[in-house]
Nucleic acid binder design. Structure first.
Lengths: 218, 218
DNA sequence: CCGCTTAAACTAGCGGTGTAAGTTTTCTGG
DNA sequence: CCAGAAAACTTACACCGCTAGTTTAAGCGG
């Protein structure tokens, strides 16, 4: 089959199929040939639309990031905005957990990831965080959210009572974590996020007080 | 070369060489054939010592986890112990950042990772955290530490001023993050960890008060 | 001390992978 | 209407994880 009358592939179709493949079978099972087969095509044809496998993964990662809602930064104070953004960020990632290890390496040159970083950093600086500190706040948030999505904590434990009973005196119930995976991971996220935001609010008060001492007027 | 008079390979030598290879060239460049070559051997020989590539990576991951100091849980109150553990955990992971994506998938059946989980959970329960809540605390800590080690936040940004100037109004200085990588990532970790522990201490007071109301005596 | 079993290296080879190179046909711009 | 770009193809290379079977050495029971 030479050039078809109607193009068979588009970047969007490739990205969607790649994401579906990764969701279904995991990152390790993702290959250009399997992806091409899923699209009814022959492997090297993908290279008419992407430079290489990595570029496809980049586009998949960005399509996941694009689902994060960053509108809160325009509508709420920095603390509430961080909270809403964090939950949306987490939701986007946990919807496609197999992509997270790739995605979590940083924004690189991906537009959606950069737009997100821009929104977060801009809102923090506008809220009075000194630039260096705003970077720290954004990074700390990314640490927590990315870490929470990078493989479920609960799923990390094997469902094998024997394993724990022998050598790990406090892990006797660990094999049951998988049953309550969602509530464990969500509860931990909620607890950690509230704690983090609480602590950051304290720091914000301290920092703002230092920049504008009480009684100062501008 | 048939069976040599002195064994050429041992599990330890394989794991050390694998870690060195991954540190030097990244997880993606790690292959059984390259590892074997680095050991002066022929690929399939590795299978006399490990079941498969995955088992080698498991051993590498556990050797990294084994460097985490969990002795604080026996010597300090839960909050101080969490702080010391978190710093040691972070140090162990950032010493081998390329291993983190693999390692962060959970403890699985790795002894060092399970011993760590056991120590953390045991100390939290002993400190009065209800079991379910202790799990949340441990998970939240893992989220934060793993996320912080999973690729530097600062390194995630490309060193290319052009890229940012055009479309991201607040990221004008982002290309300079790489220069201050260590201080950015350490500062963010310190800020986030303090905030997290602060918030958790609040929650601990609330929880303990609920279990043993003021005035109760046992 | 012989002989069996096991251990630890090897070679050969299978099916799969990313991607480069070159081919064919179709679409499109001047 | 023709030139060249576009988008599919086939072929091919080097590498990958891993299996199977071979060779020799080490360790051990009789």
């Amino acid at each position: 089959m030479p050039r078809p009358r109607q193009p068979v592939l588009t970047r969007d179709r490739i990205v969607a199929a790649a994401l579906a493949l990764i969701d279904a079978d995991g990152l390790a099972a993702f290959s250009t040939r399997r992806l091409a087969a899923a699209l009814g095509v022959r492997g090297p044809s993908l290279y008419n639309h992407f430079a290489n496998r990595e570029a496809i993964l980049d586009a998949v990662a960005d399509s996941v990031t694009a689902a994060v809602d960053i509108s809160a930064f325009a509508r709420h104070d920095w603390r509430e905005a961080l909270r809403r953004w964090a939950w949306s960020y987490r939701a986007a990632l946990t919807a496609h957990p197999n992509v997270v290890p790739y995605l979590a390496q940083g924004p690189g040159r991906r537009p959606a990831a950069l737009a997100m970083a821009d929104a977060v950093y801009g809102a923090l600086v506008k809220a009075g965080w000194p630039p260096a500190r705003a970077t720290h706040v954004g990074a700390a948030m990314r640490y927590f959210v990315a870490g929470s999505a990078l493989g479920s904590f609960a799923r990390g434990f094997v469902e094998d009572p024997e394993l724990y009973a022998a050598h790990y005196p406090h892990l006797g119930q660990a094999h049951r974590l998988a049953e309550h995976q969602r509530s464990v991971d969500e509860g931990a996220f909620a607890l950690g996020l509230d704690a983090l935001l609480h602590g950051l609010a304290d720091e914000h008060r301290r920092v703002v007080a230092a920049v504008e001492p009480p009684g100062a007027n501008g």
